[in-house]
Amino acid sequence: MANNWIDAAAEADVPDDDVTSVAAGGVELALYGVAGEVFATANLCTHGNARLCDGFLEGHEIECPLHQGKFDIRSGRASCEPATEAVRTYPVKIENGRVYVDLG
Protein backbone atom coordinates (compact mmCIF):
# COMPACT_ATOMS: atom_id res chain seq x y z
CA MET A 1 0.00 0.00 0.00
CA ALA A 2 1.41 3.37 -0.99
CA ASN A 3 2.10 6.03 1.58
CA ASN A 4 -0.29 8.95 1.59
CA TRP A 5 1.64 11.63 3.49
CA ILE A 6 -0.47 14.73 4.08
CA ASP A 7 0.85 18.04 5.40
CA ALA A 8 -1.27 18.32 8.56
CA ALA A 9 0.15 21.23 10.58
CA ALA A 10 3.15 23.28 11.52
CA GLU A 11 5.17 21.51 14.21
CA ALA A 12 5.03 24.75 16.24
CA ASP A 13 1.20 24.50 16.29
CA VAL A 14 1.28 21.17 18.15
CA PRO A 15 1.40 22.04 21.84
CA ASP A 16 3.85 20.33 24.21
CA ASP A 17 2.13 17.88 26.57
CA ASP A 18 -1.26 18.65 25.05
CA VAL A 19 -3.54 17.82 22.14
CA THR A 20 -5.00 19.80 19.24
CA SER A 21 -7.24 18.93 16.33
CA VAL A 22 -6.67 19.41 12.62
CA ALA A 23 -8.47 18.39 9.46
CA ALA A 24 -6.11 16.89 6.90
CA GLY A 25 -6.97 15.01 3.75
CA GLY A 26 -10.63 14.92 4.72
CA VAL A 27 -9.85 13.27 8.08
CA GLU A 28 -10.25 14.89 11.50
CA LEU A 29 -7.12 14.12 13.49
CA ALA A 30 -5.95 14.65 17.03
CA LEU A 31 -2.27 15.64 17.17
CA TYR A 32 -0.39 15.19 20.44
CA GLY A 33 2.94 16.67 21.51
CA VAL A 34 4.73 14.45 24.03
CA ALA A 35 8.41 14.65 25.02
CA GLY A 36 9.43 16.30 21.75
CA GLU A 37 7.52 13.81 19.58
CA VAL A 38 4.24 14.19 17.70
CA PHE A 39 1.60 11.47 17.55
CA ALA A 40 -1.64 11.32 15.56
CA THR A 41 -4.91 9.48 16.10
CA ALA A 42 -8.43 9.72 14.79
CA ASN A 43 -10.15 12.46 16.78
CA LEU A 44 -13.31 10.53 17.64
CA CYS A 45 -13.54 8.22 20.66
CA THR A 46 -14.48 4.65 19.71
CA HIS A 47 -16.84 4.38 22.68
CA GLY A 48 -18.92 7.55 22.46
CA ASN A 49 -19.39 10.50 20.16
CA ALA A 50 -16.69 12.66 21.75
CA ARG A 51 -13.69 14.46 20.31
CA LEU A 52 -10.41 13.28 21.84
CA CYS A 53 -8.90 16.76 21.35
CA ASP A 54 -11.25 17.89 24.14
CA GLY A 55 -9.85 15.23 26.48
CA PHE A 56 -7.05 15.22 29.04
CA LEU A 57 -3.56 14.11 27.96
CA GLU A 58 -1.31 12.54 30.58
CA GLY A 59 1.94 11.13 29.26
CA HIS A 60 1.06 8.92 26.31
CA GLU A 61 -2.60 8.47 27.35
CA ILE A 62 -5.56 10.53 26.21
CA GLU A 63 -8.68 10.46 28.36
CA CYS A 64 -11.99 10.87 26.55
CA PRO A 65 -13.90 13.88 27.88
CA LEU A 66 -17.25 12.09 27.78
CA HIS A 67 -16.91 8.81 29.70
CA GLN A 68 -13.24 8.89 30.78
CA GLY A 69 -12.14 5.96 28.63
CA LYS A 70 -8.41 6.11 27.89
CA PHE A 71 -6.25 5.31 24.87
CA ASP A 72 -2.51 4.92 24.36
CA ILE A 73 -1.73 7.49 21.64
CA ARG A 74 1.24 5.43 20.41
CA SER A 75 -0.69 2.24 19.63
CA GLY A 76 -4.33 3.34 19.84
CA ARG A 77 -5.00 0.60 22.40
CA ALA A 78 -7.91 1.22 24.74
CA SER A 79 -6.39 1.22 28.23
CA CYS A 80 -9.37 2.03 30.47
CA GLU A 81 -13.05 1.14 30.33
CA PRO A 82 -15.59 1.94 29.10
CA ALA A 83 -13.42 2.19 25.95
CA THR A 84 -12.63 -1.29 24.63
CA GLU A 85 -12.02 -0.71 20.91
CA ALA A 86 -8.71 0.83 19.82
CA VAL A 87 -8.65 4.27 18.23
CA ARG A 88 -6.92 4.47 14.85
CA THR A 89 -3.37 5.79 14.88
CA TYR A 90 -1.43 7.28 11.99
CA PRO A 91 2.32 7.39 11.26
CA VAL A 92 3.86 10.85 11.67
CA LYS A 93 7.03 12.41 10.29
CA ILE A 94 8.44 15.89 10.76
CA GLU A 95 10.12 17.62 7.82
CA ASN A 96 11.18 21.27 7.65
CA GLY A 97 9.03 22.19 10.65
CA ARG A 98 5.90 20.59 9.21
CA VAL A 99 3.95 17.61 10.58
CA TYR A 100 3.11 15.02 7.93
CA VAL A 101 0.62 12.25 8.64
CA ASP A 102 0.30 9.05 6.58
CA LEU A 103 -3.42 8.51 6.00
CA GLY A 104 -2.82 5.43 3.81
Rank of each mutant, 00 (worst) to 15 (best):
I6G: 08
A8W: 09
R51F: 06
V99S: 03
A35V: 06
D18S: 14
L44Y: 03
G36V: 05
F71D: 03
Y90G: 01
V101A: 12
D13Q: 12
A30S: 15
A2L: 12
R74I: 10
P65Y: 02
F56D: 10
V19G: 08
A30D: 01
E61Y: 12
W5E: 06
V99K: 05
P15Q: 14
T46H: 06
K93S: 01
Y90D: 02
C80M: 02
L103R: 02
A40G: 14
A86F: 04
E37L: 11
A10M: 14
I73S: 01
L103I: 11
S21C: 11
G26H: 13
A50F: 04
D102P: 01
C53I: 00
C80D: 06
N3M: 15
G25W: 04
W5L: 12
T84H: 03
A86C: 10
G55H: 00
V92H: 13
A86Q: 09
K93A: 11
M1L: 11
V99H: 08
L44D: 03
G76M: 00
T89K: 04
A40F: 03
L44F: 02
A50Y: 05
C64E: 03
L66C: 10
C64V: 02
V38M: 09
A9V: 13
G48I: 11
D102Y: 04
Y32R: 09
E81T: 06
A8K: 09
P82L: 06
E61R: 08
C53E: 06
G97R: 09
V99M: 07
E37N: 14
G33M: 11
N4M: 15
L31G: 00
H60E: 04
Y90K: 08
L66H: 03
A10C: 12
G97W: 13
E63R: 00
A23T: 15
D13I: 13
C45E: 00
E58N: 11
I73Y: 08
Q68N: 10
D13N: 15
D102I: 06
G104C: 05
G26W: 11
A23Q: 12
S75L: 12
D72K: 02
A83D: 01
L29F: 09
L66E: 05
A50V: 04
A42F: 08
A35G: 02
E85M: 10
V34M: 08
A30T: 01
N3S: 15
A23R: 05
R98T: 15
G36N: 10
